[in-house]
Design a protein around this nucleic acid. Structure first.
Length: 384
DNA sequence: CTGGGGAGGGGGCCC
DNA sequence: AGGGCCCCCTCCCCA
């Protein structure tokens, strides 16, 4: 069975230009306390502040040099003093960790918001041309395009190593950020997809690589087990009650609680019980309001990873769930299911037959098209 | 139709 | 090998 290739669409250049260049009316900006220049993100602002103001201040350079070019006049001593004062206020207002973790000399990714200057517009135009993605006409969708999200991405995961308690490491690509997140902030060291673009993350260099899916392993035994369980679909462990098969014995043991009704994990807040500890932990976050999954684009936090994944698609427009009948795409499986329910009512006999064929291909129960709906997840290979 | 939230359950991985 | 932790996915529901 060959791995399905994810369709990744690119945003047309015309659309990128329009969005990047017509942001004057956009209110979602942050402005520099020293020079009032506006930026689309806190990170871009911090980088600007560091390079244009803080470094100059610390090196004893003239803080108004950019203003001379802009206004074509020499600034007075009072104005220079005012700029120095604003810079000192800026420095004192920043968290020490922010000062320490700001990006270094690479300013290529600074996102300049807008200040009407021709050179700034030219800079933006050049940046757009530089960042112009390679277009593949086969991948371009007609309706909603997958957004090309550009960095930098700042990791705000809790970290015991950082003095502030937060990681604060910066990454230029979303995949670099996600690989860091996986390796440093989860117990996983392989697999998983990028949190933003959902592409499979690169694996660390391992000698034994699965020829089907590309996952690497440290030894032949692990690769063999992976091949048997993931691609040959061999599940050696069976539930004695319902004969459902599992890849590991631990899976059977866990599954058995479904039959025995054993729910050993009880919520201390509301007495609700769960078959798995992870279910209880997930539930407890409702009471404790702890939201460990934070969006790297807008910092909104969620209590379940899947909620972050759903939310991220509002930024990226990734829509992995495709209707097998009309090819329309959805960002959530349940949206496709909802769509199919009402789609089914108006299906022709030919479409119903096609639908049932698709269900059989997917290994779903053979049901009549107008009775039940199932989601078809095209492009994303979850069930390998 | 879309975004967000709660729950059940499978499986990867570490000890 | 088995237990436990944790991540991911599906499904359902609501606004």
């Amino acid at each position: 069975m060959s791995r399905q290739v994810r369709e990744v669409n690119v945003i047309p250049l015309t659309k990128i230009k329009q969005e990047k260049l017509s942001e004057d009316e956009d209110e979602d900006t942050v402005s520099c306390k020293a020079c009032s220049k506006t930026f689309v993100s806190e990170t871009a602002l911090q980088n600007h502040a560091r390079i244009e103001h803080i470094d100059r201040y610390l090196l004893g350079e003239d803080l108004c040099v950019k203003q001379y070019v802009k206004t074509k006049r020499k600034y007075s001593v009072q104005e220079q003093e005012a700029m120095k004062r604003r810079t000192e206020e800026l420095i004192s207002s920043m968290e020490p960790t922010n000062l320490m973790s700001l990006a270094s000399n690479d300013v290529s990714y600074i996102i300049i918001k807008s200040d009407g200057q021709p050179e700034i517009k030219r800079f933006k135009k050049e940046k757009i041309e530089r960042d112009k993605p390679v277009r593949d006409m086969r991948q371009v969708k007609k309706d909603k395009e997958v957004q090309a999200i550009s960095g930098p991405f700042e990791c705000l995961q809790p970290s015991t190593r950082a003095p502030s308690g937060l990681c604060h490491q910066m990454f230029l690509s979303c995949c670099q950020y996600s690989a860091h997140w996986r390796d440093e902030h989860t117990r996983r060291r392989k697999g998983l997809r990028c949190q933003v673009c959902e592409k499979p993350l690169a694996h660390t260099l391992e000698p034994y690589v699965c020829q089907v899916c590309g996952i690497g392993f440290d030894n032949a035994k692990d690769l063999s087990f992976h091949s048997q369980t993931s691609h040959i679909k061999l599940k050696p462990f069976e539930c004695t009650v319902c004969h459902k098969r599992f890849t590991q014995q631990a899976g059977v043991n866990q599954h058995m609680r479904m039959h025995t009704g054993d729910r050993p994990f009880t919520c201390s807040f509301c007495s609700k019980t769960f078959t798995q500890k992870s279910g209880l932990d997930q539930h407890l976050r409702i009471h404790t309001k702890i939201k460990p999954y934070r969006c790297v684009i807008c910092s909104k936090a969620f209590c379940q990873s899947v909620h972050l994944q759903q939310h991220m698609r509002t930024h990226t427009n990734v829509a992995p769930f495709q209707c097998g009948i009309c090819q329309k795409r959805f960002k959530q499986s349940s949206h496709l299911n909802y769509h199919l329910k009402y789609h089914n009512l108006n299906m022709t006999d030919e479409q119903k037959q096609r639908y049932e064929e698709l269900m059989m291909m997917m290994g779903k129960p053979q049901v009549k098209a107008d009775q039940v709906s199932y989601g078809l997840m095209n492009g994303v290979s979850d069930n390998q």
